[in-house]
Nucleic acid binder design. Structure first.
Lengths: 136, 136
DNA sequence: TCGAATCCCGATTAAATCAATCGGAATTTG
DNA sequence: CAAATTCCGATTGATTTAATCGGGATTCGA
């Protein structure tokens, strides 16, 4: 269980935008800086825009902005937009009948864990991270 | 963020062994039944054995057993053994200097989340699942 | 009106990972 | 010894991931 480069890049990019929130559009170049592969970051920002988390301005002085205050954007939303939803569950096989115990108990385990993890991820906002709250 | 088929298969296999705990060695065939690809499951049981979670008996009436009571085996241990450790962290790039904020704040986020998720995974034992506790 | 700076976006590639199989070796029982 | 089993490294094929490419669309300012 891990977070892909996509998710890591996306959080870095979003934290950058959170820091610059209110300072006008930030160009792709400035978001990616030397840290992130530029064109790949462009893809990610596209996904984040489609998910409604960033808004963009085109043209010469264009760039990217958070579409809402950092307090209203969570790590969970960012990961969903870039990596797809956290999904631990669904029985490994699609067998309707599970010879093991009749019902597949593991299914419930994954659902339970998915819920808990989503709770963590959706409960952590960019503002929390800016404040370095909840993380000592 | 997801759990691979490896992890799902492994938990199913371990739950089967937990149910049959005390009933003597369970053959690969009976563990895999129709649910899991047999040879792949064999690989996984090998990893679980190397991690000390199952013990084996070779020869004609041989098979697999939990190496300890179900209460002492956690979902976290199973996933570590089969999928490798949960690892969300490490800065996406290896840059020592982070132009964004001096220090990479996202690093701490991933560490925080990794700790929390590991807490969940290591806190959930096969016995808990047998009892269907902690999961309503 | 033109050119530069920027976002937009589908297609493609290369590498890594994953799921699974193969072929046989070693061990134990009867 | 034969059968049933675990053991294990190697290989394959499919999928996913990370990243680039190439060009199009939009806006600003001179």
């Amino acid at each position: 269980m891990k977070v892909s480069a996509r998710g890591k890049y996306a959080l870095m990019a979003m934290m950058y935008l959170a820091e610059k929130n209110g300072d006008g559009p930030q160009s792709l170049r400035s978001v990616a800086q030397d840290l992130l592969p530029e064109q790949y970051t462009e893809q990610l920002l596209g996904s984040l825009r489609k998910a409604g988390l960033v808004s963009t301005t085109r043209g010469v002085l264009g760039g990217y902005n958070l579409s809402r205050p950092p307090a209203e954007i969570s790590v969970g939303q960012i990961l969903d937009a870039t990596e797809g939803p956290v999904s631990l569950s669904s029985c490994a096989t699609d067998e309707p009948s599970c010879p093991h115990t009749g019902k597949c108990r593991t299914q419930k385990v994954w659902e339970y864990l998915t819920d808990r993890i989503n709770g963590l991820l959706y409960g952590l906002s960019l503002q929390d991270i800016l404040d370095s709250k909840e993380m000592e």
